[in-house]
Nucleic acid binder design. Structure first.
Lengths: 191, 191
DNA sequence: TTGATAATGAACATATTGTTCATTATTAAA
DNA sequence: TTTAATAATGAACAATATGTTCATTATCAA
């Protein structure tokens, strides 16, 4: 008599809505997309939408959630002790999911995406920094500023990459990131 | 028979609307502010609003315009040949207009403001870089990336400063900026 | 087959936007 | 002070989007 908590139909509907939103992002800006358009393209009823999501942004964030889970796995498995962030893994992940990230660029809502990514990265950086146990009195640059700087530099490079049709490889982008950021990091503090 | 193109009443109305928006930004997010609320607080009729501005963002940008003119003057007069950007002038400007910039932070629309500032700074950096006539083959970091990096680092510091209730002086912030960015700039390329 | 869950669609209330227009108020210049 | 040009007003209006409700139908797991 009981059923699984989430059955196929429900998942299918969510998938249709997510796809519909992504398709629309290729054509017009996120802000200008109405819920009705999403419904029409997904062939889903209005009331169905509201039984799944709170609003338009909820759908977007939910669609994102899945991608972030993949990203998380990819980053955790590719952690390199020597670097302050698994930046190469991040660039490779974006390279692999090019189409999806491009949709966000075209829909003028990369910032929303990158904002989530930023929170994500900030936590990672924080862990790395605390495990390195830096003496906060050495540099004239406060740790809090430094962490923000590192994360934002990575995000800036990502955005530049996407905005410029990704002319370089993930490896090359990571190399640029390392070069920009390394003078400010531990080796130079201690050496 | 003819009058000045803009008379007092008109300016007063615009001022009232701008003030009203700024006050509301202290209380709630930009996105959640309706035009009606702005009108009520400014004691201005609905049709009057639309004879002055195209929409809510138009009002915001217009209010900004004035501040940017002041900023421009301040930056131009304080240009230092040795630095890549008049960053100190920018930090000082924000310090002086603290209340206004704080409103943007509280209203969750600093990004809109910083986006405009970014365009503004990008033009300046571009001029500086082209006058320095860097050999594009020396660094592994493309000039385009480098310029984006410099501007975004400055913006990141600004945002951090505002988000953290501006704990340091403008001078100190500028010092941090110089330290972060200088390893990537000409002297280190040539030396 | 059946009982639980999901989807549907149409109707509804509500909110916000942007326009129109006749009337009134303000202002610069004669 | 008068006058002609410009601005402001407010109420009504159409248009659009949002979010809810509910009775009916479809789907799926057991």
């Amino acid at each position: 008599m009981k059923r699984k908590k989430v059955d196929r139909q429900s998942l299918r509907t969510r998938q249709m809505l997510a796809d519909s939103l992504m398709n629309l992002l290729f054509e017009k800006s996120y802000a200008s997309i109405t819920i009705q358009e999403i419904l029409d393209r997904a062939n889903v009823g209005r009331s169905t939408f509201y039984s799944h999501f709170y609003d338009k942004e909820d759908l977007l964030v939910s669609s994102l959630g899945h991608v972030f889970e993949v990203l998380n796995q990819q980053l955790i498995s590719g952690i390199d002790e020597k670097s302050i962030l698994p930046s190469l893994g991040l660039f490779q992940h974006v390279e692999q999911h090019y189409k999806l990230y491009k949709a966000f660029v075209r829909g003028n809502c990369v910032d929303l995406l990158l904002e989530k990514a930023k929170d994500f990265l900030y936590i990672m950086v924080e862990e790395r920094f605390s495990s390195l146990d830096l003496d906060p009195h050495i540099p004239e640059i406060p740790i809090s500023v430094l962490m923000t700087y590192v994360v934002n530099t990575l995000i800036t490079l990502l955005k530049w990459w996407l905005d410029h049709e990704m002319p370089y490889s993930a490896k090359r982008m990571d190399d640029i990131f390392q070069r920009l950021v390394s003078p400010q990091l531990p080796p130079s503090y201690f050496g």
